[in-house]
């Protein structure tokens, strides 16, 4: 998998590239609009991670240019501007996803994975161990048998299936599943209650995955 990271901030570029390489992606970087244009037009990439604000141009223009040239590349926009207008414009211009800075690396990986999965086509199911989830129909199956889950339980499971093996911190999970407005909760017992139910249901259904508590501040999805 070959990814082009277009980002003008050197630190940001380095971190994204390093984190992607760790996941065994092949990573190319570009720091200006011109460099990005040359690379994106000249080579094939599985996905572009595109910063909108570049020193010598606007990332959205690059999107438009790629579209005009008829190059079908997956693009995830990374922007410091969390504005709906930008999001809509970017998605209209053919971007696959939009991620506002600052973001969690785990989130970037999950989005990237989902974009690449869509690119391969067909396979829309999330799979880990003997558990599969169909995000389009809100269905979960264990070894082919349907598993009934509460809404939050389902959201939590899908969140983890998108990030297998990654440490997810409690607060991040709360904000992802319950919403940003949960940011000031000073006690995360409510997650624990949902987690307990979810674990029990997975275990009872004979799933070969488990959401483990990690170091008292987070959770991790692991295959048994």
């Amino acid at each position: 998998m070959k990814i082009l990271v277009i980002e003008d901030d050197a630190d940001m570029r380095e971190i994204i590239a390093r984190s992607l390489r760790k996941e065994r992606y092949v990573v190319e970087t570009a720091e200006t609009y011109r460099a990005a244009r040359a690379k994106a037009m000249g080579y094939e990439y599985d996905c572009l991670l595109l910063d909108i604000m570049l020193p010598d141009g606007n990332g959205l223009d690059l999107l438009a240019e790629l579209q005009r040239a008829g190059r079908r590349t997956n693009v995830i926009i990374l922007s410091a501007r969390d504005a709906i207008e930008d999001k809509v414009k970017g998605l209209d211009l053919g971007a696959d996803d939009y991620l506002a800075k600052p973001f969690h690396l785990a989130e970037l990986h999950a989005r990237l994975k989902s974009v690449l999965r869509r690119r391969r086509g067909g396979e829309r199911l999330l799979r880990c161990g003997n558990v599969t989830a169909d995000p389009e129909h809100f269905r979960v199956e264990v070894e082919g048998r349907p598993l009934e889950l509460g809404r939050k339980e389902y959201d939590i499971l899908v969140y983890f299936l998108n990030r297998p093996g990654r440490l997810v911190e409690k607060q991040t999970l709360a904000e992802a599943v319950w919403g940003d407005h949960i940011d000031q909760a000073d006690n995360f017992d409510f997650i624990y209650a949902q987690m307990k139910n979810l674990r029990k249901r997975l275990k009872d259904a004979g799933a070969t995955i488990e959401i483990k508590t990690a170091y008292g501040f987070g959770y991790k999805l692991a295959e048994l």
């Binding site: 630190d11 940001m12 410091a80 600052p102 785990a106 990654r166 440490l167 170091y215 008292g216 987070g218």
Partner: peptide, 29 residues
Amino acid sequence: QTPLAVCQNRIEMLLEDEKLTEAQMAELV
């Protein structure tokens, strides 16, 4: 936004380091 993202992401990468002790991780978190 960008410097913030850099800091956050660096810590996240550090958290994936297997050699960290639990106390160190707690500090990082």
